[in-house]
């Protein structure tokens, strides 16, 4: 295993890494990565997240995150944070405890929400909590 490719969930310069990482790089991560564009459509979706949710990439890429992929995040705790950052043109890097409904099972996760005014994509990172 190529250890220098493994980036930790809490990596400080995460946005820079994600921006430069290839799809293969993202697939090697041991946490979920969902990248969305300004219209909240999913542009990037890595293997870890795909396996956890039970959805293949082609069912997700190009679709609206908060409607088709993860409606559970469409509240003030997640979606609102992205909206606020977008509205204020400010950077966002919040990590919150959350519960996702992966394959209809409640699963405790940490979500890291990332956005910056000068970046095209915004990211939701998902790490399972044990």
């Amino acid at each position: 295993m190529n250890t220098e490719q493994t980036v930790a969930f809490s990596e400080a310069r995460m946005l820079e890494f994600l921006e430069s990482a290839s799809d293969e790089d993202l697939d090697r991560l041991d946490f979920g990565v969902i990248g969305i564009d300004a219209g909240t459509n999913v542009k990037r979706y890595n293997r870890f997240e795909s396996a956890a949710a039970g959805l293949s990439k082609d069912r997700v890429i190009g679709y609206a995150l908060f409607t088709v992929v993860a409606p559970c995040m469409n509240n003030f705790m997640v979606a609102q944070r992205f909206e606020d950052a977008q509205e204020q043109g400010s950077a966002l890097d919040d990590t919150i405890d959350y519960v996702l409904t992966l394959r209809m099972r409640p699963v405790k996760v940490k979500l890291r929400l990332l956005a910056a005014p000068d970046r095209a994509l915004r990211y939701v990172l998902v790490q399972r909590q044990t």
């Binding site: 993860a70 409606p71 559970c72 995040m73 469409n74 509240n75 003030f76 705790m77 405890d97 959350y98 519960v99 996702l100 409904t101 209809m104 099972r105 409640p106 405790k108």
Partner: peptide
Amino acid sequence: EITMVNPLCAQLLMPLSPDGQLS
């Protein structure tokens, strides 16, 4: 105790949950 739950349910319940969980 929750055994199965879909996303919209989590969306509605998470803001109410006193312990930040959905168990």
